[in-house]
Amino acid sequence: MMTYKGYTANIEVDLEASILFGRVLDINDVVTFKAQTLEEARQEFQNSIDDYLEFCKELGQEPDRPFSGAGSRL
Rank of each mutant, 00 (worst) to 15 (best):
R73I: 08
N47L: 08
R65M: 04
D51E: 14
Q43D: 13
V31G: 00
L74A: 13
P66C: 01
I49P: 03
S68V: 02
S68I: 00
L53H: 05
V31P: 06
F21W: 11
I49D: 00
T8N: 05
G6P: 11
R65W: 01
E54K: 12
S48F: 01
I19N: 13
T3W: 00
D50G: 08
F45V: 10
E54S: 15
V30M: 12
V24L: 02
Q61K: 07
P63L: 01
Y7A: 04
E40P: 06
C56G: 05
V13I: 14
E40H: 09
F67W: 09
L25G: 02
A9C: 11
F33A: 00
I27V: 02
L20M: 07
Q43G: 01
I27L: 00
R65A: 03
Q46A: 06
Q36D: 12
K57G: 14
L38I: 13
R42K: 09
V30H: 08
D14W: 01
A41Y: 03
L15P: 13
K5G: 00
Y7P: 08
L25R: 07
E16H: 08
D26V: 01
Y4V: 04
F21S: 11
T8F: 03
E16P: 11
L53D: 05
V24I: 07
S48K: 04
G22T: 13
D51S: 15
M2N: 04
E44A: 07
P66G: 01
D50A: 03
P66Y: 00
E40F: 03
D51C: 14
T3R: 06
F21Q: 11
E39N: 11
E39M: 08
E39F: 04
S18D: 15
D51H: 11
V24Q: 00
M2Q: 11
L53R: 02
A9L: 05
L59S: 15
V30G: 05
E62K: 05
K5D: 06
T37V: 07
M2P: 09
T8P: 02
F45E: 09
E58C: 14
P66L: 03
V24K: 06
I19V: 15
L20F: 09
C56H: 01
F21L: 08
N47C: 10
F55M: 15
D50H: 00
E12A: 13
A9I: 06
N28P: 12
I19Y: 09
A17C: 08
G71F: 01
T3L: 04
E58R: 14
V30Y: 09
F55S: 15
C56I: 06
F67L: 05
I11V: 14
R42S: 08
Q61M: 10
V31L: 03
D29N: 07
E40Q: 12
D64I: 05
A17T: 12
E62V: 00
V30K: 09
F21D: 11
G22W: 07
A41V: 06
L15F: 09
A70K: 10
I49F: 00
I19R: 15
N10C: 15
A35D: 12
D14Y: 01
R23V: 14
T8I: 02
C56Q: 05
D50E: 10
F67E: 04
L59T: 12
E54W: 05
P66F: 00
C56M: 05
R73E: 05
V31I: 13
I11H: 03
L74E: 10
V30A: 09
L20Y: 12
A17E: 15
A17D: 13
D29K: 04
N47H: 14
S48H: 08
